[in-house]
Design a protein around this nucleic acid. Sequence first.
DNA 1: CATGAATGAGATTTCATTCAT
DNA 2: GATGAATGAAATCTCATTCAT
Lengths: 194, 194, 194, 194
Amino acid sequence: MKRNKPKYKQIIDAAVVVIAENGYHQAQVSKIAKQAGVADGTIYLYFENKEDILISVFRERMGYFVEKMKEVIAGKETAAEKLLVMIENHFNILSRDRNLAIVTQLELRQSNKELRMQINEVLKEYLHVVDDILRFGQAQDEFDKNMDIRLARQMIFGTIDETVTTWVINDQKYDLTALAPAVHKLLLNGCALR
Amino acid sequence: MKRNKPKYKQIIDAAVVVIAENGYHQAQVSKIAKQAGVADGTIYLYFENKEDILISVFRERMGYFVEKMKEVIAGKETAAEKLLVMIENHFNILSRDRNLAIVTQLELRQSNKELRMQINEVLKEYLHVVDDILRFGQAQDEFDKNMDIRLARQMIFGTIDETVTTWVINDQKYDLTALAPAVHKLLLNGCALR
Amino acid sequence: MKRNKPKYKQIIDAAVVVIAENGYHQAQVSKIAKQAGVADGTIYLYFENKEDILISVFRERMGYFVEKMKEVIAGKETAAEKLLVMIENHFNILSRDRNLAIVTQLELRQSNKELRMQINEVLKEYLHVVDDILRFGQAQDEFDKNMDIRLARQMIFGTIDETVTTWVINDQKYDLTALAPAVHKLLLNGCALR
Amino acid sequence: MKRNKPKYKQIIDAAVVVIAENGYHQAQVSKIAKQAGVADGTIYLYFENKEDILISVFRERMGYFVEKMKEVIAGKETAAEKLLVMIENHFNILSRDRNLAIVTQLELRQSNKELRMQINEVLKEYLHVVDDILRFGQAQDEFDKNMDIRLARQMIFGTIDETVTTWVINDQKYDLTALAPAVHKLLLNGCALR
DNA sequence: CATGAATGAGATTTCATTCAT
DNA sequence: GATGAATGAAATCTCATTCAT
């Protein structure tokens, strides 16, 4: 069950490809094994069960996601700038790994409640990053101090997520990253005229 | 296959209860039949197949949803007011039918891609309502005319959806409807200080 | 259960049409009822069960078959002539009622062993007709007296049956009746040169 | 899906036994699996689906049939002798494998049209053997050159088939092979006195 | 460490038949 | 006599997981 052996990554990568190409319900363990170039039984030397593969896909990739986010955010001075690079990076990473986009936005959502709960656990880390930006913005007098942090986080995450999902459903046929500034503006200022 | 016979509604209602209580993947046709108080075979006098039951759950309830929305929205003068009653009603309807909330926010999303496509078809009607409010707001000089309608709609729907889902995941333990004004304010003004 | 009421015949006729058009396994009772223009339940006022419909189809039509045979055979003097008109009539009747041909040669043979046993019971009458011709031929010194009647009957029936079945399988695209003289000659003289 | 692994034959053999003992419609996959001493799922490692098992039963056994025929026929000089050994062997093989006789003469004929079409495809090979004998006989001036090959083949096959079926229906209670010379004589010379 | 053949539980759907009206 | 809505039993096939090699 060593997570640093090469076959571990191999299987995770294979799972992303297989799920993206076949859909969640057609991603059988034997297909993942074949794509990874290992025997079916070998999967179980590295993962507890099928659910463990899926949650691991999310954890590994989302871990990279959050690390990346923290890095680029730290490099910015204002909350507005931090929010912008976060959105840009979110869009950018998924634009570049289109299979991952399909898997996280469409396929993995078909998993059962229990798996989704675990995925939410992983997501929390990402939500903390959003919260940090929001609190930082309030402290810097950039953001409204009366604003409910939890609701604002739901707005930010919900908007980003819905935007990416719509892009995936439309077969990724437009430039997602290009939408970042407009989304950023909307999240900062809302719909109303100023 | 008549949709106005009492058993049709009876089965739809049973499906909502069974899915909410057992989860999507444990909602066997025989469980739904038992809950509805009919024989398994009777289900197939009213629905083509299992998928048809699930689609119908969504269509029937969402149909009511959209009708209700259009009604309350028409009664308001400004875009801001229209948006507020839309959010209030969305939250309110799901607050009152907690099983439906579980089914739409968590369970039905586990369905396969094809079923989700059909659900999206039903959802489009709701998204049109949002679009109408946004365009109305622009025409009335309440909303920013440079705003991308599609992105704004994604923000509004994404925020509402994420808020409801979070509430469901947290076992519906707080008052969802009470959040409507704060969500409304966020959507109108964003996070930034004015 | 009166067999002389008009609906009895109506249902038999409907059964032939439905089986010919849909095949044995797709000939549901409800389809037959619809074709006959009666309610499903009405079927059971005239027939014990589905099997009874099928066996009745065979009995009614084959009854006519045998009557016809006896009639035309009685009008001929020699065994050879009797055999010829029997073959001609067999081919002719099925040529004219192509649905019946499909039903007797292909579809009804898919029925279960029990039903086929009953059909064989009905067929026996027809086989007796053949036996009568054979014995008459032997008495008249037209046919070989050492010949095993049972085997000869199997040859005659088997040949006729196989010929009709082949014609049905080939979509009845050639003139079956035209084959009667050649089949007759073969049955009388065999393959060997004289 | 390897056809040379021992379990492949094992399942075919089990299918013959189960179908013969229970009838076509009562030959569930689970019964066949049990008879073969494997798990239900194992069946599907060797066969596409249930129909594939049935086709394979026919193909495997009929393949042996045709091979055997060609062999014994090649060893004879005259068309008459060839025909005789063909009939003898046909009767003999089915006499020795009585379950197979039940399956081919009664049970497999209950299959749906599609399966029967496939079975006919396999049968064609056998019919070619008959045709070859007939043409050989004509070339050797043993058989009537004016004879329609197709009709003669239908007579031969129809007679043999009907003879075997009658024997099976009568519970195989007489010696089928003993009938071969008489059947042979009938096919060569017909019913008529010479 | 790695393999892959074997396992076996579990669910949708059809359709002959009934019976209250 | 006639209706037709309701019944409910029954069977194929999939696929995650194991374990002998």
